[in-house]
Amino acid sequence: MALLEVRNLQARVEDKEILRGLDLTVKAGEVHAIMGPNGSGKSTLSYVLAGKSDYEVTGGTATLEGEDLLELEPDERAAKGLFLAFQYPIEIPGVASMTFLRTAVNAVRKKRGDEELSTPDFLRFVREKAKELNIHQDMLKRPVNVGFSGGEKKRNEILQMSLLEPKMCVLDETDSGLDIDALKIVADGVNRLRAKNRGFLVITHYQRLLDHIVPDVVHVMAKGKIVRTGGPELAHELEAKGYAAYENAA
């Protein structure tokens, strides 16, 4: 059984058709990249999978390990193991990052039927993961994403991803706004999480992220559909030729 199975998925926002019959299969252990021009519906796909309420699914299916995702509340999807690293992480004033992380970790653990982590265990867990991502303790004391630089926000997303131990990770333009050093830290973080039982969907506009996170499969998305699928070489081709050929496709 595939980890993530998307069949003929159609979705709209504000009466505008965005996803128009999208198919995608990600097996456990695989890394898939989705590339495509701006406005092709990449972020929409990630939001629909995660269950954002203003996106209306009008047809098709999406399952995670065979279970219907589209029926579930967003937090239930998270508990099932779906994680979305946001293109634009949201600021939460007044809530310390540490508090946020702990609340999230324990909420997910509880829904999965695991024991909540004790304070010392949690702190140890966070410190270890934060260190790997070059995240300073001071940052964890600051309110969630408030005043974070672009790089800090993206590293914070990956930190959350490591802590929540998801099965299926969707990364939406995690490379945008990162300089090369920050990009490497983030990519290393993702690579460390690659595992036999985990899948990745890496959404990006540029090939350079895929030099660091080498995908098994590359898809091209245009106008709400997957229009081409290939190996890592497809990313290089797109880098060289651009998306012009796909702007009018589908």
Partner: peptide, 20 residues
């Protein structure tokens, strides 16, 4: 939505934001 994507229920999310 951001909070709920991280596993918090709607009530947990509101409580967290309000407590902040």
């Amino acid at each position: 939505f951001y909070c709920r994507q991280r596993g918090l229920s709607a009530e947990e999310a509101v409580a967290l934001v309000v407590n902040g």
